[in-house]
Design a protein around this nucleic acid. Structure first.
Lengths: 121, 121
DNA sequence: CTGTATCCAACAGGATACTG
DNA sequence: CAGTATCCTGTTGGATACAG
C-alpha cells in the first residue's frame, strides 16, 4: 500500500479516496478505460496532453491501489494493455459524476458534454 | 477564475472537477460543511490535522470556484463562517460517494463508516 | 512501442512566529 | 479568533534524451 493512502487512512475515508483518485489525469484515465482495455499509446492520446512519464506514474499508482490491471504481452514490439478492475469501474462512475458536476456549476456548456463524449472507443 | 481551472477547461470536464475539488482536505472540508455553516476554528478541528495555512488556502480556492461562501462578522473577537453554495452541496454528495467507494474497495471496515460519521454537528 | 533517467521549475503543505 | 509571513522539505509534472 502506498504511503499517501496509509496516511489518509488515519484521517477519513474521503481523504483515502482523494489519495487514490486525486492528481491530474488519474480520473480521466480511469474514465477513458471504462470503454475497455487500451494500450499505453492509445491511452496517452485519449487522455490528453499528458507526458509519458506522468501517465506511467499515475498508472503504476492506480495499479498498486487496485484500480487498473496492467498486462504485458511478450511480443516485439512490446504491447501493454490497461483495464479497469471492479473498483476501477465503480470509480469511473464517480468520475463521470464529477465531470457532469463541473459542467453544471463551473463551466456550463451546451455541446461537448462529458455525457456525449463517452470513453475512448 | 483560477489558472488551474482555466487550464483544465482546455482538456475535459473531469479534469475541471479535479482542479476544483482535488487536493488534500478539500473534499473533506466540503463534506464537513454539509451539516451547515461552521466557523474557521470549528472547521479546522472537524477536518483533521490540517494546518491553518493550508485550510485557509483551500477555503479561498473553494470560495473563488463558487463552492463555499465566506462571511465575516464585524465583531471582536472576529468571527468568520463558511457555508456551502448549491454547487457545494452537490459536490458534498460526490465526496460521500468517494468515501464510500474507498471504504468498499481500499479499506473495507465494519465500523467507522463515512455513512455513520456524518458531517460535523 | 513502452517505457526509464535526468534535470528543472513550480507547487503543496507543515512548523513556527507573529498580527489586528 | 482568524488568519498572515517566513522558511523549509517533499512532491508534481513537463522536457529531453535514451533503452530494451
Amino acid at each position: 500500500m502506498r504511503d499517501a493512502v496509509r496516511r489518509a487512512l488515519e484521517v477519513c475515508p474521503i481523504e483515502v479516496g482523494v489519495a487514490v483518485a486525486g492528481g491530474d489525469w488519474k480520473l480521466t484515465t480511469v474514465w477513458k478505460l471504462s470503454g475497455g482495455p487500451l494500450r499505453f499509446g492509445e491511452l496517452q492520446r485519449a487522455v490528453g496532453p499528458v507526458s509519458a512519464k506522468t501517465l506511467t506514474r499515475q498508472l503504476r499508482s492506480l495499479e498498486t491501489d487496485g484500480v487498473v490491471v496492467r498486462t504485458v504481452f511478450p511480443e516485439v514490439p512490446p504491447r501493454v494493455t490497461y483495464e479497469l478492475t471492479e473498483a476501477g469501474r465503480e470509480l469511473a462512475g464517480i468520475a463521470v459524476q464529477l465531470g457532469r458536476w463541473s459542467e453544471r456549476f463551473i463551466a456550463p456548456v451546451e455541446a461537448s458534454t462529458v455525457s456525449e463524449y463517452g470513453p475512448a472507443s
